[in-house]
Design a protein around this nucleic acid. Sequence first.
RNA 1: GGCCCCAUCGUCUAGCCUGGCCUAGGACGCCGCCCUCUCAAGGCGGAAACGCGGGUUCGAAUCCCGCUGGGGCCA
Length: 480
Amino acid sequence: MSERVRVRFAPSPSGHLHVGGARTALYNWLFARYHGGTFLLRIEDTDADRSTEASVEGILEGLQWLGLDWDEGPYRQAERLSKYREHAERLLRTGKAYRCVCTPEELEGRRKAALAAGRSPRYDGRCRDRRVEPDTPGALRLRVGDVGVTVVEDLIHGGVSFDNAELDDFILVRSDGVPTYNFAVVIDDALLHVTHVIRGDDHLSNTPKQIQLSQALDFPLPRFAHIPMILGPDRTRLSKRHGATSVLAYRDQGYLPEALVNYLVRLGWSHGDQEIFSREELIRHFDIAQVGDTPAIFDQAKLDWLNGHYIRQADPKWLADLVVPFWRQVGVLPEAIEARTAAWTTGGDGTTFAEAVVQAFRDRATTLAELAQDSRFLFRIPIEQDGQAVDRYLRPETLTHLRELTDRLRGLPTWSAATLETLYRAFAAEKGLKLGDVAQPTRVALTGGTVSPPLFVVMELVGRELCLERLAAVVGRTGA
RNA sequence: GGCCCCAUCGUCUAGCCUGGCCUAGGACGCCGCCCUCUCAAGGCGGAAACGCGGGUUCGAAUCCCGCUGGGGCCA
């Protein structure tokens, strides 16, 4: 490829950045980075009724979070209206386009009639040769020949041909002066020197029209790559009713951007058997020609697995910072974290309290939200008791043992996972018990449930003071 | 309705272009075992797919046609 690659992501700001759009952006971004080209961003906001500034901001935020940095833009179509007008006038002058004075109501009526009569609901071309005064209001239509075929040379689908007779004289500019999608896209892609149009499959049917238009305008044709869509579990186009589709919603649930990127890139593309890709590897290996042509179903379970993987791989320091807002969501305030951090002396290897927590809990969390929820009992806040666990593990005979253990814990010289384990093992051996016979009841007393990281790590993290308090509450004694 | 796209385990996919190496490979999920103070993580193992029908060929998941099914675009 001798020409300098220029690609674009062109969302319309009528909603959030959803995972389908994110994948399209990602493929464009990777294509640009692989070729050392330019990735530009364009906001398709000609539809003022449906476009919102909040949506623009959300889209930019989502892209930034995913690490998809753009080199140019964001361009806004709403600020480029004069360019569309200019080229519309040119088409009108050269006779490539004509003014159509049919009203929307008339068109709708004829469309219905055609459908009822079993004919195709295409525009019948009745204004094509009608002579109208230059300033007559009305829509602008492209004059499309009805012989021959238009072939889309697609990087993913190969040559796809459309009968020109199937194309009608589509509208370029509505009677209210607003350019249509197909018109604005062609103008902008040409004016911005876009070399490759990488977009969703749903635009494949629009492409012959855009090719016709490019030719009428004497614009060079970009290359096309129409990537298959992402579907929901019911095999229909992914939408809100399939649950979270917004990129920022995944962020807010505690997914890591690298996990989402890794998941999305593999949805429709593969590189042998490799599942995990660093950003550098993606840039090195991503080949648009390797993108498959079959639609893919979004699978939350696999995303969860990847997210868990990335959480386990992540630098604990970085994770510890990320988890703070999630703790807040489950009622752990920053002051509580600060207090624990200040009191945290064990370890001595320089790891902070939060880092130690992350290391202890990350093997069993798929999201940061889950990690925060699982670890909230470490703080001095009311904890939920699992009634079944209490009934099962905190029976009178075990409480006797816990009472004795409490006394020994109070006198333990050094409060660390290692010394605690030694103490517990010695106690169990002395009483002829299995470790689990005393470990599980202790776990229930401290955490409220039967599931946690290794007990002695948990005890170290909870700290002697709070451990003794919670044990005392359970064995029915006060005063630690 | 017309046109266009698509069709390998439940899901993501390798293989298809350039037929034989496919007893169809990997991953997620699921099931089992190991590890073990619980749950995970990790390790090991298992069940699980070429939509159907015709061709072409010595031979087809791979090429061709049809059907069926799904998706999309036209409003």
